[in-house]
Design a protein around this nucleic acid. Structure first.
Lengths: 225, 225
DNA sequence: TCGGCCATGATCAATTTTGAACATCTAGAC
DNA sequence: GTCTAGATGTTCAAAATTGATCATGGCCGA
């Protein structure tokens, strides 16, 4: 079942690097890869499908801190001193996920410059992305943040067929944006009126209109017009 | 003036790796290292002193996205496709900063596993830190976020002498927390009453009391008691 | 078919945040 | 000394957000 290429390397080559430290597994919809609080002894790589990372606060609030597609690592915190998972990783779709044991990964990072470079590049892209998220949280109110999340989801989905819309509930959107479902419902209706999105079995996103919206003045100044 | 050791390597060893791609410079208080919008062609390393990274939004709001001390890199976005600086880097104190040209850095990352490992470790720690910031923004109101920022500032300052308090204006705190100065003023007075902080020429932080405060239930539920 | 469950639409009071005032106070410039 | 700029303390109305509640409609399993 495993695909031929992983991390842009042939599976055979990669197996040689990791030997028994590597395993591949399929996860079904909503299956948990690891839970907040678990011991952290491996990193993962999304070979196909989608994974979301969520955090639960002391007040039972939930936040989605990442929505990862093919080509992303996760659980990398364990390489940097985290002994417990600080988030829960859930397979959203059917996913094929590579598991790399911490020990093997550390060893491979040391010995294999090629893998180290790949991993390095990933970390960089992730930093850039999270920093954007952080700035977004600082500057914008929820309506704009929701628009941004939708735009990114639209981009991510670009590769798929147009007749395969996203399956994202308003609750999940609320958690990604950092707001309540009630507001998402309200904003989504506004967006529907503006043709930013459409519901045809799933969610269809008009990236161009949303991008234009995000170009305009921040905040909701223009909603008064 | 340059210290003997940089990145835990002797300056001589590091020079051998980077040759002309590396330079060291002293920056004075409030001197700008690079500005948002500049072309990004080098990464930097804080050898001593403090650097803050700020972003200005379209609405003239400013956010501090990082407060970096000795041992941190910054400007690393240029290695991952960012051709322009997305933030402004300012030396807060007197700082000694190493500049590594993009080309040399990419080359060294490829050829020198030792340097690659150092850089990798830094990226990891940074991801962990930014993710914490993001989760914090999601879950907490400004009072708690301010407490957290103070706690972290206190930790950072731990190494210095106790008679050398922090020089951080309420405006800067507001930008770090993501709120307005008026609120910071209000919260700081509350914190003073609770002995979380003291003003003796500069800011003195009682990490223990703040940590205890952050342990309690999130939000401001307990302020009613 | 009947429930039950979940996603969605909608409302509302209480709380938090914003943006903008205005008044002190202090340190450094002149 | 006097002036001025910046940091701080305080207040307020307007706006945004929260948390909670209730209603509706579709889907699926018993």
């Amino acid at each position: 079942m495993a695909s031929e290429h992983i991390l842009g390397l042939s599976a055979t080559v990669l197996r040689k690097k990791f030997r028994t430290g590597m395993s591949v597994r399929n996860y079904k919809e909503n299956e948990i890869v690891f839970s907040q609080g678990d011991t952290a002894d491996a990193i993962f790589y999304v070979q196909s499908g989608t994974v979301k990372l969520t955090v639960v606060s002391a007040r039972h609030k939930k936040a989605v801190i990442a929505f990862l597609r093919r080509g992303s690592f996760f659980g990398e915190g364990c390489l940097g001193g985290q002994s417990l998972r600080i988030c829960t990783a859930i397979s959203v779709d059917q996913s094929e996920i590579v598991r790399l044991r911490k020990g093997s990964t550390v060893r491979t990072l040391k010995r294999d410059p090629q893998f180290a470079r790949l991993f390095n590049a990933y970390l960089l892209s992730r930093i850039i992305r999270i920093e954007e998220d952080l700035v977004d949280q600082f500057f914008n109110f929820s309506q704009r943040r929701l628009a941004r999340v939708l735009l990114l989801l639209g981009d991510i989905n670009e590769g798929s067929k147009p007749e395969c819309p996203l399956k994202v509930s308003q609750s999940t959107l609320a958690e990604m944006v950092g707001t309540t479902r009630a507001r998402v419902s309200k904003f989504m209706n506004e967006f529907k009126k503006k043709d930013f999105v459409r519901y045809n079995g799933g969610l269809q996103i008009n990236g161009k209109l949303i991008a234009a919206f995000l170009q305009t003045r921040p905040m909701s100044v223009d909603t008064k017009a």
